[in-house]
Design a protein around this nucleic acid. Structure first.
Lengths: 250, 250
DNA sequence: GACGAAATCAACACAAAACAACATTTTTTG
DNA sequence: CAAAAAATGTTGTTTTGTGTTGATTTCGTC
């Protein structure tokens, strides 16, 4: 059991088969190390090795949400810890869906007596387990890849409430277009949550600040008052204008 | 149990793996101290240690429920496997709360195109992750220890649907009083799910069939038609009368 | 069946991590 | 307030893991 074995299994479960060279490149170690790590895994029957390729024996489909949770984990965990610092025991929160918010929910397990409204079944399930929390699941029909609801009942539940803080995630940031998410309904939920909250936190790790042109994404509406942006690294200079007026924690 | 152990577990649950150096840096103590704190945690099976890394044993995606599902794990998993055999791809299901149903939900991850209605946020979250499933979360306000909903919206959602199979869990079985659960609201949800289902499965591992007098528990209503009882071991003779007319799989 | 390219394996040198023993500090307790 | 106990840091040693080099095997092609 090496420290790389989990990464290797993860990567293989995703792509089915990979070469030793691809893996050594991915993990930044030599091919020899990959072979040494792979041998015991092969002997344990967890993966299959042929000349030129390593094949996963596991069921090849890992759910997309879990995949996203595993991707860029360190950065998201860092953001989640910074968010945690801003939340006190007893606060009321609105939390949207998105993998970063999944980490935030985990980190919030150390807080007590939280009141939470969320449209993500994962966030709801995570926080409801904590005795003393009050959790409201907004929505009925769940989207299949991440267990989030965007139906009318979701909006109705959110709009009935009033919270201290909304914690929202973004899929990408664009210097000119602002903060973007993949679907219109996600932007609508974000807006609804922001409206009922006294303050809004935007959680975005540094990987969201790449400057590739965003295609087919939806911009979040302007927030009022200006939100607090939480990142795990300093922002590129190109975003200075975008975050003018916002509090930035990085 | 050192004062650092909680911090260490917390940090690891979030990140998955960390090195000793990272932890000593995070907590501001020497690497040797980290090792000393980690050793008992490792022996208790809470962490895994390999050369160069410490790994959290609790799969962070499913950690919270797993701790409460740890009790009688093997038996519940065995029941879940038997339930799985009775469910085909494409079926529609109503699943109630309860730790046995948590295992059933995990087992059902291998099925495809399921339509599921449940009042457990954990079950909803687990099954919604599977692409191709349609999942409905019944209810809004979640109970704090298990993330299950019993409000009016929960009943309304369930009653609007029609499913092939209801999968219900029981807390205890009593030769005379029948199948029991802890709260009236749990019995009500069970009844509502049974009504909308063409057949009803009762999942109960052998530990539910102890003959201690049940105090302050609520009996489930009679099911029509007779349910199928799924257990992981043959039933004690005292229950022969109770299960007369039922299909029993053990 | 021989050839070349790519992949694998084996052995060595080196670096990083883990460990053990001792010194030091902090906390507890009478 | 002092002695004892516990916890932490430091140092040096041992163990483990890693990269490099070069030999060997496998695979596709002619």
């Amino acid at each position: 059991m090496s420290k790389y074995s989990q990464d290797i299994e993860q990567a293989l479960a995703l792509r089915g088969t990979m070469t030793v060279a691809e893996l050594s490149d991915l993990l930044g170690v030599s091919d020899q190390t990959i072979r040494r790590v792979v041998r015991p895994l092969q002997e344990a029957g967890r993966l299959e090795k042929v000349h030129g390729a390593i094949r996963s024996m596991q069921n090849p489909v890992t759910a997309p949400f879990q995949t996203r949770m595993a991707h860029n984990r360190a950065a998201k965990a860092a953001v989640a810890e910074r968010v945690l610092d801003l939340i006190a025991d007893g606060e009321s929160l609105a939390i949207d869906t998105g993998s970063t918010c999944g980490f935030v929910a985990q980190a919030l397990a150390v807080r007590r007596r939280l009141t939470v409204v969320t449209n993500s079944a994962y966030v709801a399930s995570t926080l409801a387990m904590q005795p003393g929390n009050r959790v409201f699941m907004a929505g009925t029909q769940l989207r299949d890849h991440d267990g989030a609801a965007f139906d009318r009942a979701a909006f109705a539940t959110i709009e009935r409430m009033q919270v201290d803080t909304a914690i929202l995630s973004v899929s990408q940031a664009h210097p000119a277009r602002g903060f973007l998410v993949g679907e219109t309904c996600e932007a609508d939920i974000a807006a609804a949550m922001s409206v009922i909250a006294a303050r809004t936190l935007l959680a975005a790790d540094h990987s969201k600040f790449i400057e590739t042109p965003a295609r087919g994404m939806v911009a979040l509406a302007q927030f009022e008052p200006a939100p607090t942006l939480i990142c795990d690294a300093p922002l590129p200079a190109a975003y200075a204008a975008l975050v003018r007026g916002m509090t930035v924690i990085a």
